[in-house]
């Protein structure tokens, strides 16, 4: 049991971490409600809150820029998440259950890919994509996103699959199940939380990317939200688009927060299960 003193220290520590992590979010949230005249006022809270920033990105000048980039972000992130989850599930299943030469190599390669700095690949990729016509297209972003999401997905899922009691499949077969039924009824319910958690992590990685998004796109054909924010302009050239950017940032943060809140139990159990016995 914790003593009172320890409890106080824990509470203080938790508050410090929360403030550190959430203050920027709160600042952006507050800023998104400020009219343009107040942006430089230096106060934290807007004195006369307004929805004009949200109006401008959802219905006003910046609407086209923002909504098209939102569509790109959602589409590209979802597709690369689905693809990465399917591929990572198959790969991790093979690594966890089968014995084949080069198993270590696959794991090490995927680790090597994930520690390669993004910024060092982006210039060659820019040239390559321009040559083969992938520049400024959805596949042009989906492919590099998968290079970010696949390694971590493979590693998390392998760790997760390794501690699934696979003999349950055999138990189910003895109990009268076909091979498919055994997999469906005994294994899938246990594997699903891991796959689900991994998919969420992959989605956030793709959703949050900036470097690829800004370097490999040039128009609203494929530009995702984080990159599009840089292209916001104020209503006049003397006006900073800070308010609109803040509003857009809040809008793109919402899905992340909602997903995490909805699935926090699965995420925690998925992550810790993989972590404890990997």
């Amino acid at each position: 049991m914790l003593t009172t003193k320890q409890k106080v220290w824990w509470a203080l520590g938790t508050v410090a971490v929360l403030v550190y992590a959430l203050f920027p979010v709160a600042a952006i949230f507050a800023t998104s409600f400020k009219p343009s005249s107040e942006l430089t006022s230096g106060t934290f809270l807007p004195s006369s809150p307004t929805l004009s920033n949200y109006e401008s990105i959802l219905a006003g000048d910046a609407q086209e820029l923002f909504l098209s980039s939102l569509r790109n972000s959602i589409g590209i992130s979802v597709i690369s998440t689905v693809l990465a989850s399917i591929l990572a599930t198959l790969a991790a299943y093979a690594i966890a259950r089968l014995d084949f030469p080069g198993k270590k190599l696959v794991l090490m390669t995927s680790l090597a890919v994930s520690i390669f700095p993004v910024i060092s690949i982006v210039t060659p990729l820019f040239n390559l994509w321009r040559t083969i016509g992938l520049y400024d297209t959805w596949p042009g972003l989906i492919i590099p996103y998968m290079s970010l999401t696949l390694p971590i997905s493979i590693w998390t899922l392998t760790a997760f699959f390794r501690q699934i009691p696979w003999e349950l499949e055999q138990a189910a077969q003895v109990d009268g199940a076909t091979t498919y039924q055994a997999f469906r009824r005994a294994i899938v319910p246990l594997a699903a939380p891991g796959v689900f958690t991994t998919a969420l992590i992959a989605f956030f990685i793709a959703w949050n990317d900036f470097v690829y998004g800004i370097s490999l796109t040039s128009t609203s054909a494929a530009r995702p939200v984080p990159a599009a924010l840089a292209f916001f302009t104020g209503s006049s050239q003397f006006e900073e688009p800070t308010g609109a950017i803040s509003a857009a940032a809040v809008v793109v943060t919402i899905p992340v927060v909602v997903l995490v809140l909805l699935f926090q139990r699965q995420i925690v159990s998925g992550l810790t299960q993989g972590a404890v016995k990997g």
């Binding site: 003999e167 349950l168 009824r185 319910p189």
Partner: peptide, 12 residues
């Protein structure tokens, strides 16, 4: 019908 050494119960 078989009883396994580690019981092989379905945890879910």
């Amino acid at each position: 019908a078989m009883v396994f050494q580690n019981y092989a119960l379905y945890p879910h």
